[in-house]
Design a protein around this nucleic acid. Structure first.
Lengths: 238, 238
DNA sequence: CTCTTTAGTGTTAGCTTGACACTAATGGCG
DNA sequence: CGCCATTAGTGTCAAGCTAACACTAAAGAG
């Protein structure tokens, strides 16, 4: 039975017209300018020269998430710290070339910087755009981006994914700013710190971040402690 | 641009091997035996005679949700009160015939009874199965069902979708039992009633449900009140 | 040394949650 | 008709959680 899947194209025995299937990724990063999204400039028709989400066609023997990782690696070379399926967009007219169904993913990366952002594959360029300066996007990618933004907002309070947007060591102020940006509202400093620390999933390091003003203690997200607590019925909430 | 999508198959110009795309639906109902799921017995290879989720191929000019509604109507004739995309399953070997990607939906219906459950289209039979008596399912439909069950559990507390499983008029006891079944834990009667009523989205009717024991007041979910409250920043939570 | 900048710290009032037990209304049956 | 069985309906209190609020501490720049 699992053999059948290895027979190659000739085993595609359905008599129906087939849509093409792609994956597209909304990659979020967090930096000085708040939340940013990674876009690529299209090097091919349709929408040549326009900005779009990185993505491409799913190969024949490749899982959907694998396809997303491959495309992202081909076009940008980024290292992801989180990747999850978002939603599948399949309106009949969403691609002018014909029926194309896209399985959208959203991803988080730890630092905006990373290597200078290679742009290869179908992408003519790759660039981070902060939320304020987003251009019009090709296809229905604007909608996809909106859904991803909502999902991020909805999820960050119930799952410890915010840490995936910060470097390994971070200050509590940075964490708070991240939450304020994602949730789009101000948080009280003392209440926030009390809540975060009471979760018992942050490891206090001896390192300090120096900069303007008083040095700030650096913390690390303790994955193990989180896993143990979760197995014990603990529920993350911020 | 929207013209291009109407050109028919010849406008399918991508050079890639194409997976087939299907939709599958997890339909939940609520009755005496708790939560039930609607399954159909397959009338065709592969897995002939096995129970599976209702579903089928997406047509060329049909949206994904439209396809789900059509297949469900063809195979069972049910009237849905809620339908939402769940997740897309695309493991290369999930279908022995070759690459088939399925966009899964989950749906709720107001009453298990409904018309005697027609079984047409590809379905040789259609039947409700309560959670305790679920058979082995074809393909990876067991996994899909599991994901749907989790989603229902996760969502029922934050969105007023529980009402979509009850008739228009219902008792608070019925609502509580529904929540207990979906969440898989006991709830305190007084606390539950206090919380539900304090939301201000239930309309108290003058009707009573008679049966064994003291008659129970019937309530109706007030969609308008909910919509107004929600627009005002109110957040449903139970 | 002074000023600016950012980090760090406790308390209280109001609200929400969870635990808990009895009375009320009806139908069935003896 | 009365009693019993069955389900509906009701209030209080303690504990925990949330939100509001302002000052001191440490460093670098000038």
């Amino acid at each position: 039975m699992s053999d059948a899947a290895n027979e190659g194209p000739s085993s595609f025995t359905y008599a129906w017209p087939r849509p093409a299937v792609t994956v597209d990724c909304v990659v979020f990063g967090f930096g000085e300018d708040g939340l940013s999204v990674l876009l690529v400039r299209r090097g091919e028709e349709p929408f040549v020269g326009q900005w779009a989400l990185p993505g491409g066609f799913v190969r024949e023997k490749e899982g959907l998430e694998d396809a997303a990782r491959r495309e992202l690696d081909e076009e940008t070379g980024l290292t992801l710290s989180f990747l999850e399926q978002l939603y599948t967009f399949g309106a009949p007219a969403r691609d002018p070339r014909g029926r194309v169904i896209t399985v959208a993913f959203y991803a988080l990366v730890k630092e905006l910087a990373q290597p200078p952002l290679r742009a290869t594959g179908d992408a003519a360029a790759a660039k981070w755009f902060s939320e304020g300066e987003l251009p019009d996007l090709a296809f229905d990618h604007g909608d996809i981006l909106g859904v991803a933004r909502e999902r991020l907002r909805g999820k960050v309070r119930w799952q410890p994914i915010g840490f995936e947007l910060l470097p390994e060591l971070f200050t509590l102020s940075a964490l708070q700013t991240l939450y304020e940006v994602v949730l789009e509202r101000q948080l009280d400093k003392r209440n926030f710190r009390r809540k975060v620390l009471s979760l018992g999933i942050l490891e206090e390091t001896q390192e300090m971040r120096r900069g303007p003003g008083r040095p700030a203690r650096l913390y690390r997200f303790d994955k193990d402690a989180y896993a143990r607590a979760e197995a014990d019925g603990f529920v993350f909430e911020l």
